[in-house]
């Protein structure tokens, strides 16, 4: 048994705008993950849908839900259904493409988000596994090609080797590190930590206080 659902609130919750926990609330979370990884205001979002997402995204509000997440709205924010208008107002251009064929990350509820501005482009492949819980199975950022196990939470730490050692020591006191992967690109490093449990806000703040550049999703 892989325990993808680690909290009672993965089952009873989230409180959300309807109509679908996987296609709406989960989509908000995928958008939110992409926003965090991008770490800057984006001007262009392209979404590629696969399988059930490709067939039913319009009916389930997946379009506005993903955009709501990219804009930083919470799943229960009443503005979620108006996210496409909000995006327009904030200068974010969006495009949705329904792909034929199987999901490249092996799940029927797959969305691959490409987020960009004049400086950079990232790609995040997420799937919504049910009840609003998501997995992130591929990330392309700053030239790194990440392949996480999928389940959240995931912590990404950029920079020098001693940086991630400090983070690792701090993390070890908070929770178990299920998997740790080091990626290198153009002499730069990025370390991915797959964590056993969600971190509290003050714990993330304590990690950030070490000065390392990091993203917690």
């Amino acid at each position: 048994m892989t325990a993808n659902y680690k909290s009672v609130f993965d089952i009873i919750g989230p409180v959300m705008i309807g109509p679908s926990s996987s296609h709406t609330a989960g989509a908000v979370s995928i958008g939110h993950a992409a926003r965090k990884i991008f770490r800057a205001p984006a001007t262009q979002l392209t979404v590629r849908y696969y399988e059930s997402f490709a067939q039913t995204h319009r009916g389930h509000g997946t379009d506005y839900a993903l955009v709501a997440g990219v804009l930083g709205l919470a799943p229960a924010d009443p503005r979620v259904p108006d996210a496409l208008t909000l995006a327009q107002q904030q200068g974010l251009t969006v495009q949705f493409i329904e792909m034929a064929g199987a999901s490249p990350i092996g799940h029927p509820n797959t969305a691959i988000l490409t987020l960009s501005n004049a400086q950079k482009t990232i790609e995040v492949a997420g799937c919504s596994i049910g009840g609003g819980t998501i997995e992130i199975r591929r990330i392309a950022v700053d030239g790194f090609e990440l392949t996480p196990r999928g389940p959240l939470p995931i912590l990404l730490v950029w920079g020098a080797a001693n940086n991630d050692q400090i983070i690792q020591n701090k993390l070890a006191k908070m929770t178990n590190i299920i998997q740790q992967k080091r990626y290198t690109h153009a002499k730069r490093q990025l370390v991915e930590f797959d964590l056993e449990r969600n971190l509290q806000q003050h714990e993330v703040a304590s990690l950030q206080a070490s000065g390392a550049e990091l993203v917690y999703i």
Partner: peptide, 21 residues
């Protein structure tokens, strides 16, 4: 009906099944 109207519900375990519990 509230869920279908894009109102606020609590997913239990999902939004599509949010009325059962």
């Amino acid at each position: 009906e509230v869920n279908a109207a894009m109102g606020v519900v609590c997913a239990t375990p999902t939004a599509g099944a949010s009325g059962t519990l």
